[in-house]
């Protein structure tokens, strides 16, 4: 699979998630077993008006979405994998007016579970937050075929 195919699949998937679309999440890079998404800066997700730093919740959503979509970059067919748990460490506040990127990779995939790691950062900056996640593999049949085809780009 070329990177372009993966980028398109992930883009179609995150585009059907209202919250991801509303935050303006976009695919920055996709490769086999790894994925980078971008969260643009916006006033609506500020957590502290005095510093204009965005809220940790928006970073959690960015990292949950990136970690939960990285399987698309490792599986031949789309499978929705619900989050079992996330552990987020907030290292430093994000700089205002700058986008935040999250890069996730699969550490291990078993028949039932996907283990992920993710780092959030800004251009030219240090790591803002890290996230370790586990996701459940519920099988591709759990997602209606029409959705799978739409995400894979194989609609008739």
């Amino acid at each position: 699979m070329t990177d372009k195919v993966l980028v398109d699949r992930v883009a179609r998937f995150i585009n059907i998630l209202n919250q991801a679309r509303d935050l303006g999440l976009a695919v920055a890079d996709a490769d086999s077993g790894q994925l980078t998404l971008c969260l643009p800066y916006s006033e609506k997700i500020i957590g502290n008006p005095e510093t204009r730093v965005i809220h940790g919740g928006a970073i959690t959503t960015l990292m949950d979405t990136t970690s939960g979509s990285v399987m698309i970059c490792a599986l031949d067919e789309f499978e929705l994998c619900p989050t079992l748990d996330l552990r987020v460490d907030y290292m430093r506040p994000a700089e205002p007016d700058k986008a935040v990127y999250a890069r996730a990779e699969i550490r291990k995939m078993t028949r039932n579970i996907v283990f992920t790691r993710c780092e959030a950062y800004q251009e030219g900056g240090e790591v803002i937050a890290t996230c370790v996640g586990t996701f459940m593999r519920i099988g591709r049949e759990a997602t209606p075929k029409a959705y799978r085809d739409m995400i894979m780009g194989t609609e008739q």
Partner: peptide, 12 residues
């Protein structure tokens, strides 16, 4: 609900 929103809700 997006899992991240549930997380953000609990954080705030």
């Amino acid at each position: 609900i997006h899992g991240g929103v549930i997380g953000g809700f609990m954080e705030v």
